[in-house]
Amino acid sequence: MSRVWFSQPLETVATFWRVLRRDGVTLGFTTHDRDLWFDGVCHRATPGMVPSAIRRSADFEPDSAEVQGALSHDSIAPADLAAGRFDGARVLIGLVDWESLETHVLYRGTIGSVAEEAGRFTATLQSRKIELHRDPVPRTSPGCRAAFCGPGCTLSAARFRHDVTVQAVDRAANAVTFNGPVTAADLAGGQLRWLDGPLAGTALGIAAALDTAIVLDQPLDILPLPGTRALVQEGCDRTLATCATRFGNAVNFQGEPFLPGNDLVARYPSAPQ
């Protein structure tokens, strides 16, 4: 039998707030006056954390929630917030009985973005119902719509992932040169994940190749030292020619490169000569 919360005049209940970052780090906080350990996570006491009302509805509109003060805890570094390590992190907000450690989750969502205002960080929370606003109908496109090595592509990601180490960093160009078995040109459009150093766990996109270096899609606030390890995945320009010649995967190409565009419909007829 499930518990009925707040059914008694006096309850031993606190609010908890859990953040599961995309790099594998999990942080927990609670409004209780001491740390609480449950669900395998230590939830730090945050007296300044003030939960607001959580609105849950039966329609398709996203639920709203906000917590003030949690992002000001000492365990959350401003540098990590500014670097985007909390963007896209999963969030759980719920109730916990600080005696029995029984819990009940009230809200599940993700952190859409983190902003700094007047020296304080605030997070925009998005409930899981935001996924209902995504259009599931595919649109025709000359390029491939499938994610490289993802559903529809069918290629094995393990074939195109490589362990590399940093050789040099160009801060002005936001470019990194790696020692490894793959060329910079093959990495254009791919992904990079740092395995050690101060950026460990952070994932970045590879925007382009610059000679033997790769250009990252986000600036490096902290420069990795030579020898820093990273895991890189090759990229794809989503054209049929690349899919056929480089990967031999044209049969799974998820695009329509020969479909006439809108300019053909708007074109005026011409008289035969």
Rank of each mutant, 00 (worst) to 15 (best):
R3N: 13
W5L: 05
S7V: 12
Q8P: 05
L10E: 12
T12G: 07
F16K: 02
V19C: 06
G28Y: 01
F29N: 02
H32A: 15
R34F: 14
W37C: 15
G40I: 08
G40D: 06
G40Q: 04
R44L: 14
P47T: 04
M49I: 05
V50F: 12
P51N: 02
P62E: 15
A65E: 04
V67R: 01
Q68W: 15
Q68F: 11
L71A: 07
L71S: 04
S72D: 12
I76G: 08
A77E: 08
D80W: 03
D80V: 02
A82C: 06
G84I: 02
G84K: 12
F86Q: 05
A89C: 04
I93C: 03
L95Y: 02
S100Y: 14
S100C: 05
T103C: 11
H104Y: 10
V105Y: 13
L106S: 09
R108L: 09
T110S: 09
S113H: 15
S113W: 06
E116C: 03
G119R: 00
G119Y: 13
F121H: 05
T122V: 09
A123Q: 13
T124R: 12
L125C: 03
Q126D: 02
R128E: 08
I130W: 10
L132P: 13
H133K: 05
H133F: 10
D135L: 07
S141N: 14
C144W: 02
C144M: 07
A146W: 06
A146R: 01
F148P: 01
F148M: 07
G150C: 05
G152I: 04
C153Q: 04
C153W: 11
T154V: 08
T154L: 03
F160D: 15
R161N: 07
D163R: 13
T165Y: 00
D170P: 11
A173E: 10
A173S: 15
A175K: 01
V176Q: 06
T177S: 11
N179G: 13
V182N: 06
V182C: 08
V182S: 07
V182K: 07
A184R: 01
A185F: 06
G189C: 01
G190D: 11
R193G: 09
L195K: 09
A207S: 11
A207K: 10
D211V: 04
T212E: 12
I214V: 10
I214D: 09
Q218L: 15
Q218P: 00
Q233V: 02
Q233I: 02
C236A: 06
D237F: 10
T239L: 01
T239Y: 08
L240K: 01
A241K: 10
C243Q: 03
A244C: 02
A244I: 01
A244H: 03
A244D: 01
R246Y: 03
N249F: 00
A250Q: 10
G255C: 07
P257T: 05
P257Y: 09
N262S: 14
L264T: 13
L264P: 03
V265F: 12
Y268C: 09
S270D: 07
S270T: 08
Q273W: 09
